[in-house]
């Protein structure tokens, strides 16, 4: 309020001066210098008024001072959220010099400052969405293939682990020891960057599938072994007493009883898997994480990271709910 009054006073003082003879009219350099001083003193309203007093150049005259004064005033007005006045000044410049880049850029800034955040978010989403959707598809393909491979691998390893043959159980013990004991990232690096030195070169996709499959088989194997060993020993005896072989007992009696017990821990693993697929972005696979990262690097727009996070959340939520339902369905034979 105070600054406003001061500005008005200033104006009134200036008007008679401006109305004086041409010789007494302050030159454009003087006005610019005065306004700059006011800016330094933080008297911005007065500064804008003085900037505006710089006259438009006559045809053939140098336009530099005029453009500069209008730009400075427009920037001050923009910082005060006076979008209309600010863009008015830009248009004054453009009327004189239609190709002035500075004024055009400022107009763009004014426009984007006027659009609400959520509108901007949607606009960005529209731009990034096709890329993200495609990348999500790749993430899902990786998850689904690993979900098919690893239970099979896990079962073979689990049965090997509980085998009475020392060689077999020892071998699979080593397998689990290595694949659970080292980072998945390192395993992926080894498969993609390390194997070529042994003459095995894999494309990113098979390398990613192999890495995830081997790693998750090891984890699922231990879960399955635990589940098989948790089944009452009497079940195996009852099966044997009917004359069943070891494999018949396993296939018909023991393994089916592990299904329900397997769902919660395996569901956990598969949810971890969704997130672990992000690691294959390091071996040149374009999946959700890498796509988001690429868009971010190109635009420095943080929203793309939020969008990627949202997709991961949606996927993990779907898994959580489906595994819960599956567990209930597999438990129909229980009296609860």
């Amino acid at each position: 309020m105070h600054a406003c009054t001061l500005g008005l006073l200033f104006f009134m003082l200036l008007i008679p001066a401006a109305g004086g003879s041409a010789a007494e009219t302050p030159g454009q350099y003087e006005l610019l210098a005065r306004a700059t001083r006011l800016v330094q003193q933080d008297r911005l309203d007065e500064a804008v008024a003085v900037f505006r007093m710089v006259p438009a150049p006559l045809p053939g005259e140098e336009a530099g001072i005029f453009v500069r004064s209008r730009m400075e005033a427009a920037k001050i007005l923009l910082s005060r959220k006076d979008y209309q006045a600010s863009s008015g000044l830009c248009h004054e410049i453009l009327a004189l010099l239609p190709d002035n880049l500075e004024a055009r850029n400022l107009l763009g800034e004014i426009q984007s400052a006027q659009t609400p955040r959520w509108l901007k978010f949607i606009k960005d989403l529209k731009i990034f969405l096709p890329t993200l959707v495609k990348a999500t598809g790749m993430t899902l393909v990786l998850v689904l293939i690993t979900m098919l491979i690893s239970p099979l691998g896990g079962l073979i390893i689990a049965l090997g682990r509980i085998s009475r043959l020392q060689v077999l159980s020892g071998f699979f013990w080593c397998y689990i020891w290595i694949f659970r004991g080292t980072p998945l990232l390192l395993q992926l690096f080894f498969i993609y960057y390390g194997l070529p030195s042994m003459g095995i070169t894999l494309d990113p996709f098979p390398a990613a599938v192999l890495g995830l499959g081997l790693n998750y088989s090891a984890y699922l194997a231990e879960i399955m072994r635990g589940a098989i060993e948790s089944i009452d020993a009497g079940q195996m005896e009852a099966a044997k007493s009917l004359g069943m072989t070891y494999w018949q007992s396993m296939r018909r009696i023991i393994i089916p009883q592990t299904y329900k017990r397997l769902v919660p821990p395996v569901g956990n693993e598969f949810i971890a898997l969704i997130k672990d697929t992000a690691l294959v972005s390091t071996i040149a696979m374009v999946e959700l994480m890498r796509a988001a990262n690429q868009i971010y690097s190109a635009t420095f727009n943080v929203f793309v990271l939020f969008q990627a996070a949202l997709v991961y959340l949606v996927l993990t939520s779907i898994f959580t709910v489906s595994f819960r339902k599956l567990e209930d369905r597999l438990g129909v034979y229980e009296n609860r």
């Binding site: 009497g234 005896e237 009852a238 007493s241 229980e334």
Partner: peptide
């Protein structure tokens, strides 16, 4: 068996 061991 004493504890039945039916297949649940």
């Amino acid at each position: 068996f004493q504890h039945f061991h039916l297949f649940p």
